[in-house]
């Protein structure tokens, strides 16, 4: 089992906890960005201010909430994960608004991907069933599943809309909606899963990913950090496959009627 949040090791980790004063000092870098935006007349100063303020408020709140949960209120883990899944589902559904019932599709895909992946990790005793493990790992799966779900839903909708002549030719040959949609379903699953696969291929060569960097900054040995990172990558591969599969299957159902017709918004309006 990976020990989460233990360990110190050699090298020079951060020289102590970061204070809110330190955070304030790092605003210097935001100021640089604002100056650049003004100077180049990019017009993003307001956005930057909003982003800076939001990130501060959101993370401070989350920090205190997590601290509260970790200090003996572990039962709230489920609530925290549910809130994350809900927010991710709404975000993903908003991207794919043209898919009828996109909220339900996204909620199903993201929650099953999350529950399934975390369930496997816990059942195999790879990570402990504790708030400190479940919440951060859950957030990683949920984020990845959210992106995959958005991608699969929008890709499938847009591809079927663009290929409706071919789709209807297949339906006319007495194929079921599932058979008729299969080439585009496959393409959407590929597009949903490929980014994670590529990320997994180049991990460490191009980018040192978040979990690993976090552990190293916190003073853990890189050997321990990579183990966590490997689990994270494999978990994301699995989680994304779950999410893509469910999002794809459910989206196909939403884009056809029970009588194996394209839904009205996807049919051409002929003369």
């Amino acid at each position: 089992m990976i020990a989460i949040g233990a360990v110190t090791a050699g090298g020079a980790p951060l020289s102590g906890p970061i204070s809110f004063g330190d955070v304030a000092l790092s605003l210097v870098l935001v100021a640089v960005a604002v100056v650049v935006s003004r100077w180049q007349r990019v017009g993003l100063e307001k956005d930057m201010a909003v982003a800076t303020f939001r990130s501060f408020a959101q993370l401070v709140a989350v920090g205190y909430i997590l601290d509260y949960i970790f200090k003996g209120h572990g039962a709230l883990t489920i609530v925290a994960v549910a809130v994350m899944v809900g927010t991710a589902s709404l975000t993903s559904a908003g991207r794919a608004r043209r898919v009828p019932g996109s909220k339900l599709v996204a909620a199903a895909a993201i929650s099953v991907a999350t529950a399934g992946t975390l369930g496997v990790l816990a059942a195999l005793r790879i990570v402990p069933v504790s708030a400190r493990a479940i919440i951060p790992l859950g957030s990683m799966i949920i984020t990845a599943a959210m992106n995959t779900t958005s991608l699969v839903m929008t890709r499938l909708h847009d591809d079927l809309a663009a290929s409706r002549r071919e789709v209807e030719a297949r339906l006319s040959l007495a194929q079921s909606s599932r058979q008729a949609a299969l080439p585009w379903l496959r393409a959407s699953l590929r597009s949903g899963m490929i980014p994670t696969i590529d990320q997994t291929k180049v991990v460490g060569l191009v980018a040192l990913p978040g979990a690993m960097t976090g552990m190293i900054l916190a003073g853990a040995s890189p050997i321990l950090a990579i183990r966590l990172q490997l689990v994270v990558m494999y978990m994301l591969l699995g989680g994304n496959a779950f999410a893509a599969l469910i999002a794809g299957q459910l989206t196909v159902r939403r884009l056809f009627t029970p009588s194996h017709q394209l839904i009205k918004s996807l049919r051409r309006t002929p003369g």
Binding site: R165, E168, A169, L171, S172, L173, A174, S176, S259, H260
Partner: peptide, 14 residues
Amino acid sequence: VLELRRRVQSVGQV
């Protein structure tokens, strides 16, 4: 519907 479509075959313009 699938049996209907088997019996009533349609071919499009293009």
